[in-house]
């Protein structure tokens, strides 16, 4: 076995536990945020020299210091994760602008680093983070929160499991008092306070193909925000009931009437059909005119909804848990 030059006595890796300690140290270094000009910072928050830490771990060569070699990995880490979130949240990026978006997602990744083998899940806790730290999106925190929920729902809708849809026949055969209907796991129902759906249509155009691209190459380029040619008007403040779903493996979102939204929400919770319809009818404006409940009008509407939802394959048998 060829012997290499003498190594410092620290940072040895002679056991599993030393390997783990070594990897923990490296991870800590890679997770350190970059400076605004995309370089590694030379001191930790506690004022410890990263240059010294790098020298203890990594050999220099004739062109690069230990710190510069560590910096390559530090940059690659950040470029990869930031790129992924730029791709997944184009609406949030357009809303906040590049600088604010970058600040937000950097802070997010420091608190919630990836705990999944796939970058697909990287943004899964962004909504929670925004609730905890709304000032990162200030003064647009409410719109930003709507946008994050909407964009995360699209990630779910894109590749979450599809269950066998039920047919209208299945519904007709059963007692509505007891009948429970499930919803596709990929269908997300969102109650929003801003028209972020319309805003995103304006932002995205063809940019987003939605297909994740994990690969084994290395990128040396900092992520870039898309240059939106014109400043878009902010999403209008309005109550929006939205279904985010896929059909024939294409992603869609559809505005719903409040009563339809209520009905779907209740079905999703496992409420029996009749009771769910009862809650929906209370929500329905057209069913009440001059204080009189117009059951026929609502019945007609209900049939239309179920026909549509069946054709969209949203309705399934309930999951075994319910």
């Amino acid at each position: 076995m060829k012997s290499l030059e003498a190594k410092p006595q620290h940072n040895n890796v002679r056991s599993r536990s030393e390997l783990k300690a070594f990897q923990q140290k490296m991870l800590e270094m890679l997770y350190r945020p970059l400076s605004p000009d995309w370089k590694s910072r030379k001191k930790t928050d506690e004022g410890i020299s990263v240059v010294k830490i790098a020298e203890g771990l990594i050999k220099p060569n004739d062109r690069l210091t230990s710190f510069e070699r560590l910096e390559i990995y530090n940059r690659c880490y950040w470029f990869r994760v930031l790129d992924s979130l730029y791709d997944d949240f184009p609406g949030l990026l357009a809303l906040l602008g590049n600088r604010k978006f970058l600040k937000l997602i950097t802070a997010y990744l420091i608190r919630y680093p990836s705990e999944s083998f796939t970058l697909r899940n990287l943004g899964s806790r962004l909504e929670s983070f925004l609730c905890e730290e709304p000032e990162y999106a200030s003064p647009l925190q409410e719109i930003a929160l709507d946008m994050v929920r909407f964009e995360w729902a699209q990630i779910i809708a894109f590749d979450e499991i599809a269950r066998e849809p039920i047919s209208p026949k299945d519904i007709q055969k059963r007692d509505p008092e007891k009948l429970r209907i499930g919803l596709q796991p990929y269908l997300a129902l969102l109650e929003l306070n801003h028209a972020v759906d319309r805003y995103l249509i304006a932002v995205k155009n063809q940019e987003f193909d939605g297909l994740r691209k994990e690969a084994s190459n290395t990128s040396n380029a900092a992520p870039e925000g898309k240059n939106h040619r014109r400043r878009l008007s902010l999403p209008k403040r309005e109550r929006v009931w939205l279904a985010v779903h896929r059909y024939d493996n294409m992603l869609y979102y559809k505005r719903l009437e409040p009563a339809a939204f209520t009905l779907l929400k209740e079905l999703g919770k496992g409420t029996p059909l009749e009771m769910a319809c009862g809650k929906a009818i209370k929500r329905d404006g057209s069913a009440k005119q001059k204080g009189v409940l117009k059951a026929d009008a609502f019945q007609e509407k209900l049939q239309g909804w179920f026909a549509e939802w069946s054709s969209l394959r949203w309705l399934t048998l309930p999951s075994p848990k319910k």
Binding site: S15, L19, L30, R80, S114, F117, E214
Partner: peptide, 14 residues
């Protein structure tokens, strides 16, 4: 916790 990078190993027997 994941880096989503392919990081080189320390080349040791352990």
């Amino acid at each position: 916790r994941y880096t989503h990078d392919l990081l080189p190993m320390p080349y040791t027997f352990a």
